[in-house]
């Protein structure tokens, strides 16, 4: 069991490292270095900054040194809490990001909880009542969920919100709370606004998970141990919930690993459409403005969120599946 956890941990750390390298590559991708872009931006706004300032910046980020030194410099900065400077905002990257990281986590967590809460019972229902009208209805909705990209869904819902209810469904806060400091009222306001974007982000994942759960459970329902339990006189309801659902939950739990990247991806683009105060719109803005330290940091944070979430779901899986606990499954 420990060996399994250790293997997962090593892989997670390795993945995290790859994420930082990829983020660094993204920072480096645009032609010219950060100071060039900074200079161009400053001259466009006609601010007067001395040449020495640029030179000191170059030294600070080791831009005159080889690439790997720059990477190490950047990384060591991160470990001491310095993620670089956003030139678009002229502030440190962390200040720009503010509580958007937390908002992204809240939104993604909400989407995952919703996805699970919806997909689990529907998946069970669809498998137990295979080929019933309800099964067909859910399968159909599931296909729509797979087929409609989340940003389009967001647009369409916004349109209906606008035309039918004359209300703006975008944002995570009502206007009066937008700039307020955190308070109980603001939290309640957030909880009130959260479900709709969470549903939009979670829909395609929900559709996928319903399919997974239905297929898994259908497989399990045909297994002989179900006949054994049935022959022991168990009622169908207890039986299904106690044995096959429990077994089918394991692969279901492991879907968090791929659900997370999916949901974080979705949150970026849906946040752009709905104007949510998460990392998404900030990432788009920074990429368009070639504000690369900010963009790279956001990509890295999103990647790190996924890696950590996946690792936690691996631990969860280990906890619920005795076959992994006893090292029976690789």
């Amino acid at each position: 069991m420990l060996a399994y956890a250790a293997r997962r941990l090593v892989l997670a750390i390795f993945t995290l490292w790859t994420v930082t390298v990829l983020s660094f590559i993204i920072i480096q991708l645009p032609p010219g270095d950060f100071v060039d872009a900074y200079m161009a931006q400053l001259s466009a706004t006609q601010s007067n900054v001395s040449e020495q300032h640029f030179e000191s910046l170059r030294r600070q980020y080791a831009l005159d040194r080889p690439m790997y030194v720059q990477y190490l410099k950047w990384m060591s900065g991160i470990f001491s809490g310095d993620f670089g400077t956003s030139m678009m905002w002229r502030k440190s990257v962390l200040d720009v990001i503010g509580d958007r990281l937390a908002m992204t986590m809240v939104l993604s967590l909400g989407a995952i909880i919703l996805t699970w809460a919806v997909a689990l019972p529907i998946g069970i229902y669809s498998a137990v009542r295979q080929y019933s009208i309800g099964d067909y209805v859910f399968t159909f909705i599931g296909f729509i969920g797979l087929g409609v990209p989340s940003f389009l869904l967001a647009l369409v819902l916004m349109y209906f919100g606008f035309t039918l209810f004359d209300s703006d469904i975008g944002g995570l806060f009502s206007p009066e709370y937008q700039l307020e400091p955190w308070s109980w009222g603001k939290v309640k306001d957030l909880l009130y606004h959260l479900p709709l974007p969470a549903i939009i982000i979670g829909l395609s994942g929900t559709a996928e998970l319903i399919r997974v759960m239905r297929a898994n459970l259908l497989d399990e329902l045909r297994k002989p141990y179900v006949i054994t339990a049935r022959a022991a006189g168990m009622s169908e309801r207890t039986l299904v919930l106690k044995y096959p659902v429990r077994v089918a939950l394991n692969p279901f739990a492991s879907t968090v690993g791929y659900l997370l990247p999916y949901i974080l991806s979705g949150s970026v683009i849906v946040s752009v459409v709905l104007g949510l105060p998460t990392l998404g719109p900030l990432l788009l803005g920074s990429l368009v403005a070639q504000d690369m330290f900010l963009a790279g940091t956001i990509v890295m944070m999103l990647g790190a969120l996924t890696v950590i979430g996946t690792f936690l779901s691996d631990l969860l899986l280990m906890w619920i599946d005795p076959r992994i606990r006893f090292e029976m499954v690789q």
Binding site: S265, L287, A295, G296, G303
Partner: peptide, 24 residues
């Protein structure tokens, strides 16, 4: 396999956005 696992565990849209933004 490790390469695949790593690539799959990174959210795609931010990654694509980052790379696409670098097109001259």
């Amino acid at each position: 396999q490790r390469l695949i696992e790593i690539l799959r565990s990174i959210p795609t849209i931010p990654l694509w956005m980052g790379m696409a933004a670098a097109f001259p």
